[in-house]
Simulated assay, not measured.
Amino acid sequence: MLAKERLLYIIKRLQAQPSISVADLCKELQVSKSTIQRDLKILEDEGKISRERGGAVQKNLDEIMSDLTEIPVIEKVDIHAEEKKAICREAAKVVKDGDLIFLDSGTTPLYLIPYIQNKKIKIVTNCYLTLARLQGCDAQIYMLGGLYIPKYEVCSGPSTIEQLKQFRFDHAFIGANGIDLELGEVYSSEFEIGALKKAVMKRSKDSYLLVDDSKFSLAGICTFGYFSEFTHIYVNDFPKNEKRSKNIIICK
Rank of each mutant, 00 (worst) to 15 (best):
M1L: 07
L2H: 14
L2A: 07
E5R: 15
L7M: 02
I10C: 03
K12N: 05
K12F: 00
R13S: 03
L14I: 04
Q15T: 04
Q15Y: 00
Q17L: 05
P18A: 06
S21W: 08
L25G: 07
Q30Y: 10
Q30G: 12
S32Y: 05
S34V: 11
I36V: 14
Q37P: 00
R38Q: 03
L40W: 02
K41N: 07
K48C: 06
S50D: 02
S50K: 14
R51A: 10
E52I: 15
R53W: 15
G54K: 07
G54Y: 10
G55V: 04
G55P: 04
A56T: 04
A56R: 01
N60T: 13
M65T: 02
D67Y: 03
L68A: 01
I71V: 15
V73N: 05
D78G: 07
D78M: 13
I79H: 00
H80S: 03
A92T: 06
K93L: 13
K96H: 15
D99A: 10
D99L: 11
D99G: 09
I101N: 09
I101V: 14
D104N: 13
D104Y: 10
T108Y: 01
T108C: 06
P109K: 08
P109V: 06
L110H: 09
Y111L: 07
L112T: 14
L112V: 14
I113Y: 14
P114A: 12
Q117N: 12
N118G: 14
K119R: 15
K120D: 15
K120G: 09
I121C: 13
I121M: 13
I123R: 11
T125F: 09
T125P: 00
C127Q: 01
T130S: 13
L131A: 11
L134T: 13
C137Y: 06
A139I: 11
Q140H: 14
I141R: 12
M143L: 15
M143S: 13
M143E: 08
L144I: 12
L147D: 12
I149P: 01
Y152V: 03
Y152I: 00
Y152S: 06
C155K: 03
S156D: 03
G157T: 05
P158T: 12
S159P: 02
I161D: 08
Q163I: 02
F169T: 02
D170E: 15
H171W: 08
I174D: 02
I174W: 04
N177K: 01
N177Q: 03
G178M: 04
I179V: 15
D180R: 00
E182L: 01
E185M: 09
E185N: 07
S189Y: 07
E190C: 01
F191Y: 11
F191G: 00
E192R: 10
E192K: 10
A195V: 04
A195S: 13
K197E: 06
K198A: 13
K198L: 13
V200Y: 01
V200R: 03
V200T: 00
V200N: 05
K202I: 03
S204F: 04
D206H: 08
D213M: 07
D213V: 02
S214M: 06
K215R: 13
F216L: 02
L218W: 01
I221P: 00
C222M: 09
F224D: 03
G225L: 05
E229T: 01
F230N: 05
H232M: 08
V235H: 04
N241E: 11
K243C: 01
R244P: 04
S245P: 02
I248E: 04
I249H: 05
C251P: 09
K252R: 05
K252W: 00
